[in-house]
């Protein structure tokens, strides 16, 4: 990068951070209702990306619908087959289970399509740069920012203004209590998985458009950073997850721009170091969720 134009940095930060925020929100939705740190979210992203790849000759709209559908169906399938039977298990077992689900889908994908990266360019019209106040900004980054804002807005509306949103917030605060006052566990959890599938597909689409490649470990890369964001923001807190995403995006961009060249390859190591530090000083994140403390 090297270019320290403030608008350039701002656009980079928000477009990178937006992707992380959406990923973190997908993880955070599941965590808040189930206390499950869902590693398999990575494969939702990957499979959605492969759906785009598989339909790359078709109209863009078809590819988008297919990728959203793929991620949602996969999210529901993992819930039904793997996570529902473990709903009453402890966090550690669920975490290991989600690791296993993630590996299972990833290996299945490698088995069926191979591990080599494949080029794909779903949105070629967005490639050209435009100039804003002296900075060269690609249309794609602006589209990413707009898509992120739209998703955040829609999600906020859903959670604040609809009854299922109310149920989800209630379940996030105290699942048992919510059940006692008539919230249906299944519908809340399924809604969370559908939404996280949707968010995964959006992330996949934007990420693939930015990088131009699909490969079976694509999701892992981005979801791991998403985890960082949820932890920094506060596990189980959705505003925290979104804020954490943008914060991580900002950190990544700033580290890239400010670190001396010889330390730049270690950029992500610094990111993970920050996670550990946050966990040490604020174990529940910077914006902790209410009701997270385990009761004795």
């Amino acid at each position: 990068m090297g270019n320290l134009n403030p608008i350039q940095i701002l656009v980079d930060t928000v477009s990178v951070g937006g992707l992380y925020a959406l990923t973190a929100l997908g993880l955070g939705l599941i965590f808040s209702v189930m206390r499950l740190a869902n590693f398999a979210h990575a494969e939702l992203v990957t499979c959605a990306a492969y759906a785009v790849f598989a339909l790359s000759g078709q109209p863009v709209a078809v590819a988008i619908v297919a990728s959203v559908g793929t991620a949602m169906v996969l999210a529901l399938a993992t819930e039904r087959l793997a996570f529902r039977p473990l709903r009453s298990a402890d966090q550690t077992t669920m975490l290991i289970a989600s690791f296993a689900v993630s590996m299972f889908i990833q290996k299945l994908l490698i088995f069926t399509v191979g591990s080599r990266p494949k080029p794909v360019d779903p949105l070629p019209i967005l490639a050209q740069p435009i100039a804003i106040a002296g900075a060269q900004v690609s249309l794609l980054k602006l589209a990413t920012i707009l898509a992120c804002i739209a998703c955040l807005g829609a999600l906020t509306y859903l959670l604040r203004r609809t009854s299922i949103g109310l149920h989800m917030r209630a379940a996030a605060e105290d699942f048992t209590m919510a059940q006692l006052v008539g919230v249906r566990a299944n519908s809340v959890i399924l809604a969370a998985f559908v939404l996280s599938g949707f968010l995964a597909a959006v992330v996949a689409l934007l990420f693939v458009a930015q990088t131009g490649f699909v490969h079976p470990r694509l999701g892992v890369q981005i979801v791991l950073v998403g985890f960082v964001a949820t932890v920094i923001g506060g596990l189980g807190s959705l505003p925290g997850a979104a804020a954490g995403g943008f914060l991580v995006g900002a950190l990544a961009t700033l580290l890239q721009a400010l670190l001396p060249a010889e330390l730049r390859p270690f950029r992500e190591a610094f990111l993970f170091l920050i996670v550990i530090l946050v966990l040490l000083f604020r174990p529940n994140g910077l914006w902790p969720a209410p009701g997270l403390k385990e009761r004795v």
Binding site: L235, A269, F272, I276
Partner: peptide, 28 residues
């Protein structure tokens, strides 16, 4: 020394971060 105070998800994420740090540092 500091990480051992964490349990559950926190410990999982912290130790996962250690793995990544080792991987990134050794790999670069």
């Amino acid at each position: 020394f500091p990480i051992m105070r964490l349990s559950g998800i926190g410990a999982a994420i912290a130790t996962l971060s250690l793995l990544f740090i080792a991987y990134i540092v050794l790999g670069n």
